[in-house]
Design a protein around this nucleic acid. Structure first.
Lengths: 219, 219
DNA sequence: CCTACCGATCGGTAGG
DNA sequence: CCTACCGATCGGTAGG
């Protein structure tokens, strides 16, 4: 029964990984002891050390499996057929949907990735950069202004800002569904980015309204 | 010389507070020891305990003085004369400008406020709620769609998402100045929010372009 | 304002 | 001889 044993082993490992992420998210990485993790997972500390050589390996596994999931899904979404705007919308919706059960992993990524030694950070940061690149490429195809070099990065990071901040306030059963909020963010960008890019070239300008600045852009 | 003694005391306290925020931002609250803080500030641990009764008091002071600064500046900005769009732009620019020298405090707010006991969190969360309220009010006045109850919170939090995420990527000397990025964010919202609000009512819709969805909104 | 410490708890490992 | 695990405890360091 080596096969089913291995499966149990992996199920248990994944469940321990998620529980650890929840504890790290709530109390911080250093603030969560191996004893606490073991207790919360209902295993002995010795068993915990059977799965992971040390605490750092747990943190690394949380982040690398989280980022691997995001990367696989966004690669798939960005390869879909259809026009650039639809592809951009799909990428935004896919990312927000992936966050549904990964709030803890997401918070750990934000606040604890930097606690790893540099050499363990490196492959994780590389994955993050690829994710950003997928979003940037989709934007450059879907939004005219995003083709300007000075606009692409701020616009890309604005979208990650909106999506990556959602864990702070978004609640299931709130004013919008998850899919609705994804549509909201995507459309905010599709409808507003060109105007925003024009506005950012003259930050001291006293444009009286969005309408006026839209006209200015069209000149 | 009680006066200048008091001044020195306060200068020293503020400088220790900022240095502590930097250490907390880099290594986490639990991951930063009182010995490390004392060494980094060039004082003995005993002197550190002369300024603060315990480690928790340092964290609380970092957050409460940071939030007090934000609150005072945003109250002033929201009281300015002018049309609603200009006031909204000013609020966004003010917030981003305040973040210029407060990256560490900002990161500590995001990742360590929750480590305080509930009763110490409470006044800080109340300040955060007032900040959100100032932004919401400015939005409701400047953006037609923001008057819809289901739109106001997601839109408000999208703006905080963009602004509060900037520490992750924004660098002085990058593609945009701070003021330019503030103008970019404000205009993205002013030009795109009404479209976005319309899009979020039918997230599965396959609108072919921003133009089409703008028309749909006007019907 | 320092050195010398404390009770407790940390991450990690022993024997079986 | 291996793996999967346990109760107990190691040497060092934390906040105070």
């Amino acid at each position: 029964m080596a096969r089913s044993r291995a499966k149990d082993y992996d199920d248990k490992r994944l469940s321990m990984l998620h529980r650890s992420a929840e504890l790290f998210a709530a109390s911080g990485y250093v603030g969560t002891s191996m004893n606490t993790i073991a207790d919360a997972c209902g295993v002995s500390k010795a068993l915990l050390y059977h799965y992971y050589p040390d605490k750092e390996a747990i943190l690394f596994d949380i982040l690398s499996s989280h980022l691997a999931k995001l990367l696989a899904a966004l690669r798939k979404a960005s390869a879909q057929a259809g026009d650039p705007a639809a592809r951009f919308r799909t990428i935004v919706a896919t990312l927000l949907e992936l966050y549904r059960h990964a709030d803890a992993e997401h918070q750990v990524q934000i606040s604890s990735l930097k606690l790893l030694p540099k050499d363990k950070q490196q492959p994780l940061l590389a994955s993050e950069r690829i994710l950003v690149g997928i979003m940037s490429d989709a934007l450059a195809a879907a939004v005219p202004a995003a083709k300007q070099k000075r606009v692409l990065k701020p616009l890309t990071m604005s979208i990650f800002g909106m999506l990556n901040w959602h864990y702070m306030w978004f609640r299931e059963g709130g004013p919008m569904t998850r899919a609705e909020y994804a549509g909201f963010v995507a459309q905010l960008v599709l409808a507003g980015a060109d105007d925003a890019a024009a506005a950012a070239t003259r930050p001291r300008g006293k444009a009286k309204s969005a309408g006026r600045s839209r006209q200015a852009e069209l000149l």
